[in-house]
């Protein structure tokens, strides 16, 4: 997290990540180029760039799309999630090279504008095999462009996390368009079916991982819990909450994370103010609840980010009766101090 906006938010870890990412990208381009020269010695440089950047971009998009569900399934993948935005922008840059050069090669150098030619040179919208597949790529790139330019925290803050997240879900539409761009484009000219199987495998992995991650509730999320006369909800026994971790409940539409830390219990809203990340899947680090997605931090007793940061989430009352943890699902205003419940020795 950062107090002020920067054009690119780099820290030591992100710089290292970006170096590794671009190293792998260059390695891929090198291997792909070499293999193309071996198997297709007459290939032209422009065709080589179009092929290599196109394959790299779709490969990166698959990686980007599986990071989210993998991070939900296993916390081991959270570091990738933390750096995913840089990969998304890098993928857009590579896809832009592919698209720009394709537009120039296939539709440039004539009296018709390349963009007009893109939509008018092949009018076979009524045919599957002859479908003007380039239009799919155009609209997908348009979505990726808007996502890349709005990826900055400035837009996240001003659009609100909910709107921003909803807009960025358009990447799923872009993915659909790109799959059809490939299937109706280059694969129509392939005599071997191996590329179809590779594409099918990629789609299978992305779709299955997303569905599995979406239907799977967080390990500790509880629902339909008993209440007492004061409106408190019975959560669990004290032993069921690991130290510096949380138990998450969903009650009356409130997503509440109850943390056990430093001999105390506190409850805050489970939704991070940054990108709606699941705070209850994070840990208490240096006395602060730390979001597993991007490291945003909140003090567990008042739901406020430590100064000078200003993010705040709702807090809830917690009580401990015997060995049983109870929470009142009625939220206090964001940032309201609630004294932690002390765990007796």
């Amino acid at each position: 997290m950062a107090l002020t906006y920067k054009s690119i938010l780099w820290n030591r870890q992100k710089k290292r990540y970006d170096l590794i990412m671009w190293g792998i990208m260059l390695l891929y381009l090198g291997i792909f180029t070499g293999s193309q020269f071996v198997f297709f010695p007459t290939i032209s440089p422009e065709a080589l760039i179009i092929r290599s950047t196109g394959t790299l971009a779709i490969l990166m998009l698959h990686v980007i799309l599986v990071i989210g569900p993998l991070a939900r399934i296993s916390p081991k993948f959270l570091p990738l999630l933390y750096n995913r935005r840089h990969m998304g922008v890098s993928m857009f840059l590579i896809a832009s090279v592919h698209a720009g050069l394709s537009l120039l090669q296939f539709h440039g150098f004539s009296s018709t504008s390349p963009l007009v030619a893109l939509f008018t040179s092949n009018p076979r919208f009524d045919s599957i095999s002859q479908f003007p597949f380039q239009t799919f790529g155009f609209f997908a790139l348009l979505i990726l462009f808007f996502m890349a330019v709005s990826s900055h925290d400035f837009w996240l803050k001003n659009l609100s996390p909910y709107v921003w997240k909803t807009l960025h879900m358009l990447v799923y539409l872009a993915y659909l368009l790109l799959i059809f761009h490939i299937a109706l484009g280059v694969l129509q000219q392939e005599s071997t079916s191996i590329y179809m199987y590779i594409l099918g495998l990629g789609v299978f992995l992305v779709v299955v991982l997303h569905i599995v991650a979406a239907v799977r509730s967080p390990k500790s999320m509880l629902k339909d819990l008993p209440r007492d006369s004061e409106g408190f909800v019975k959560v669990c026994t004290l032993d069921e909450i690991e130290l510096d971790c949380a138990k998450v409940i969903l009650v009356d539409g409130e997503n509440i994370a109850i943390f056990k830390y430093d001999g105390k219990l506190s409850a805050i809203n489970n939704v991070c103010k940054h990108q709606n990340g699941p705070l209850g899947e994070g840990k208490v680090i240096d006395g602060c609840v730390t979001c597993p997605w991007h490291g945003y931090q909140y003090l567990p007793e008042n739901g406020s980010s430590p100064p000078p940061f200003k993010e705040k989430v709702s807090t809830y009352d917690v009580k401990l009766l015997g060995n049983t943890v109870w929470v009142n699902p009625t939220p206090h205003p964001e940032g309201t101090m609630r004294p932690p419940t002390i765990i007796p020795n």
């Binding site: 299937a183 109706l184 392939e190 179809m196 779709v207």
Partner: peptide, 19 residues
């Protein structure tokens, strides 16, 4: 993703069947 799980395989099948 449930919608995509239906739509994409149908689209791929249609595309691959006309290769």
């Amino acid at each position: 993703w449930i919608f995509w799980a239906v739509l994409i395989p149908i689209g791929l099948y249609g595309a691959f069947s006309v290769v």
